[in-house]
Design a protein around this nucleic acid. Sequence first.
DNA 1: CTAACTATTCTAGCATTGCTAGATTATCAA
DNA 2: TTGATAATCTAGCAATGCTAGAATAGTTAG
Lengths: 189, 189
Amino acid sequence: MGVAERKTRERADREHRITAAARLIAEREGWPAVTIRRLADEIEYSQPVVYSHFENRDAIVTAVALEGFGELAKALRKAAHRSGDRGKAIENVAMAYLTFARQHPALYEAMFTLPTSLRFAEADTKPELKDGFAALASVVAPSRSDVEVATETFWAALHGLAELERSGRIRKSARDQRIALVVRGLLDS
Amino acid sequence: MGVAERKTRERADREHRITAAARLIAEREGWPAVTIRRLADEIEYSQPVVYSHFENRDAIVTAVALEGFGELAKALRKAAHRSGDRGKAIENVAMAYLTFARQHPALYEAMFTLPTSLRFAEADTKPELKDGFAALASVVAPSRSDVEVATETFWAALHGLAELERSGRIRKSARDQRIALVVRGLLDS
DNA sequence: CTAACTATTCTAGCATTGCTAGATTATCAA
DNA sequence: TTGATAATCTAGCAATGCTAGAATAGTTAG
C-alpha cells in the first residue's frame, strides 16, 4: 500500500519545486516575473495544477516568506551562539541580520514588504516567525526587565537599516558605524 | 494671450486631480485599486489623457510619494520647532514621524515600499527628499561629529518601527516605550 | 482482462490590467 | 471659411490571475 505514500510524497516534492522556482525567479528577475504561467512551465505542469497546491499567488509568496523566516532565525541563532561579550553578540547578530537581507533581497521582500497572509502575535503564529524574534531577544539582554520592548526596538532598527540600505536611501559605506550606534544604544540603557 | 496660460493652468489642475484621486483611492481601498481606468473615470477623461500626464502607473505613485515626502518634512520641522530640551525634541520628532506613517498608510507605502523612480543621494535628488532628512538631523545633535550616521540610524529606527507596527508585527501598546528607548539610545552616545 | 469509476491533469476561456495606435473631434490662425 | 494643429477618444493588444468543463490516466471491481 505504498501507493498513497508515493502520491503524497510526489505532491510534496512538486509543491517544493513550485516554491523553489518562485524563489529563484524572484531572486533573479524580481517578484513581478513570478507568474503562475511561468511557475507552471517550470514544473512542467499546467496552471491549474499550481492552483491545486496554492490557493492563489499570494499564498506562494507566503510560503516562500515562511521559508525565509526559518532561515533568518537559523542565521541569527548561529550568530548569537558564537559570541564573546554581550556587545559583540549584539553586533554579530545585527551583522548577520543585515547580511541576510542583503544576500536575499527578494526573499526579504517576500517576508516584509509583499502582501502575505502571515499573522504575527496570534494564536496560530508559526514557529518560524517566533524563532527569529527569540534569537534577537537572546542577545538583547536576558536580565533587563523590558526585554520584549528592547527586542522590538532592536528588530525595528535592523529592519529599517535593511530597507533603507536596499532602497539606496542611506549610504552603504557607513554601515558599520550605524551598527555600532545601534549596539551602543542597546548597551547603555 | 492668456490662452496659453489658461491651458497650462488647466493641465496642471488636471494633473493634480489625478494624483489626488490616486491618493484618495489608495488610502481608502489600497494601491491595487488605483487603476488607470479608475483614475480616468475620476477625472472624467479617457485613459490616454492620463498617459499624457504620466509616463506610466509608477510615475503616478512616484508623484504621490513626492507629495508625501514634502508633507512629512513639514510635519517633522514643525515637531522639531516646538521643542524644549534635546531629548524632548527627539521624542517629538519621533512621535510625529510615527503618527504620520500611521495616519497615511497608503501614502507612506508609496514613499517607502512601492516601486518608484525616486533616487536619493544623487545629483538630481529632489528637495522634498532632503528636507525630511534635514529635519531629522536638526534634532539629532548639531554638535556631534557623526551627525549623518546618527541621523541615518535614527531614520532607520523610525522607519522600522513604522513598518513593523503597520504590518502588526510588534505590539501597538508598547509604542511609547520603544520611542523612549530610541531617544535614550541617541542621547547617551 | 475488461469495464466502470475516480482522481488527476489539461485545454480553453473569462475578466481585468497596463498601455498604445490610429481615428476623431475641437481649437485656432490665416 | 478653410486648413492645419492640438487635444481627445475609441478600440484594441498582450499579459495577468484565476476557473469551468473536457479529457485523460490510474485504480478497482467483476
